[in-house]
Design a protein around this nucleic acid. Sequence first.
RNA 1: GGCCCAUUAGCUCAACUGGCAGAGCAGCUGACUCUUAAUCAGCGUGUUACAGGUUCGAGUCCUGUAUGGGUCACCA
Length: 504
Amino acid sequence: MEYSELEKIRLQKVEKIRAAGGEPYPTRANLTHTLKQAVELFEEFEKKGTSSPLEVTLAGRIRSLRAMGKLIFSHIEDSTGRVQLMLRVNEMGEEQLNQFKEDFDIGDFVEAHGVMIRTRTGEISLQATKFRMLAKAITPLPAAKDEIVDGKVVRHAVLADPEVRYRQRYADLAVNDDVRQVFRIRAATTRSLREFLDSRGFLEVETPILQPIYGGAAARPFITHHNQLKQDLYLRISFELYLKRLLVGMLDRVYEIGRDFRNEGVSFKHNPEFTQLEFYWAYADYLKVMDLTEEMLRHVSHDVLGTTQITFNGHEIDFGKPWRRVELRQGLLDATGIDIDQHLEDEALEEAMREKGLKPKPGLSRGKLIDALIGDYLEPNFIQPTFLYDYPRDISPLAKSKPGNPAVVERFEGFVGGMELCNAFTELNDPLDQEARFLEMGRAYEADDEERHPMDDDYLRAMRYGMPPNGGFGMGIDRLVMLLTDRRSIREVILFPHLREREE
RNA sequence: GGCCCAUUAGCUCAACUGGCAGAGCAGCUGACUCUUAAUCAGCGUGUUACAGGUUCGAGUCCUGUAUGGGUCACCA
């Protein structure tokens, strides 16, 4: 371990504290209030006009230090707020005051005892009579300084390098309060979703992350191995097939919030592991799920932000209004002039796209071509909340066909801010049809072994016992948090996003 | 994986067509009893991401590598 010059100076201070009989890392703190509590309590005292002083012991991390001879001002911070410390020679004598000046640095955790006062400039402060080191920092925090100009916080020298911020998230969080706020909102989001679903009779469950057969989505899995069982296992790519087994078991409304793992490329909206909400709702269909989705997002946004209006990427987005509903066929017809109902074969659609001057990748299935059209011509334009509904059957092997139209399934995807947020369908519950779909998928992926959609015999057996008709729903929580916090990258809403391994 | 851009002090950033690597903050020394990016005086802390190359001379030009960001491909 190589220490920098700055770190060596601080290590010397640790030695100095110990040599003087002090302890730079005491085992216990003895605070009486959080910083926010102390400020609020003092304000109450002032209102009541009591003459007795408010005596407190506070603890926090030193964020600023202004020493001027026989008087020191310093701000300490905890997760609830900030309080200014005022240390004067009058209260503690010169020796104590000098000790603070010599031993304490920005970044150290400190405990201070004294009375709450207002300074001449009106700032509520702790006038300390005693102080104690709680934890000495060796490495200086990457400086982030705030200046208050006309009541507005102006930030200086903010830690901004994304690599340092993600690899050393602790330092990022320590100096950037807005980053802490993102994760408070994230916690509030999952709390609100749970509360919403619980109150509607949904049961939260946990299903296997390690699975002998993966399924429920089209993605490549991570593979791992159980030594004692001598068995390869997959990290789940979705919860779908397990949650639907529970409907067979008479758990009528179930949901799970948890981690999915997909062995795919990373981007501003893709992380190898991400958090998903899925719910399955017996006796419902995709139309009921659409209504519940609108209600759920209105509820969450209001719960978390106090408003249904959000700003994302410069757009004002309103979760309060009913979502726009666009039929997939009509949407593509309007956007590209291509009527997918007129081109039911792979080659015919590919040819039609070519005629319109588009350049489809050759050899794709009709469903994949349509998927590509959605991504290019519809998704980026769905800024306000929009349901796109009625999808082609061949890219939706777990969704139920629309009565009277075998090429189309009852499926919708929800888009917000030009980004896919959720995906839902009237779930296929016909075991014979499901078996046929698995076989179709097997054929479709024959050429590419890695993306093979494996047959899940146990899932089919469950369905043969009888599965109630139901609507299912999946939503990327990370993307929802991106929307609620106006962050353009998924890495901003994941505490420790995956980065390439680096030699130190 | 392809292409484009970036990497300079602990942090934020400068450095012209190649010519002695330097500012603010933090840090160190001193002054200062109501400051709040405190102020004032002094001190410059560096393998310019890494490895080579061209050149009298490279932070700057060339090649390669690493990491990050963007974009395309793949995907959700």
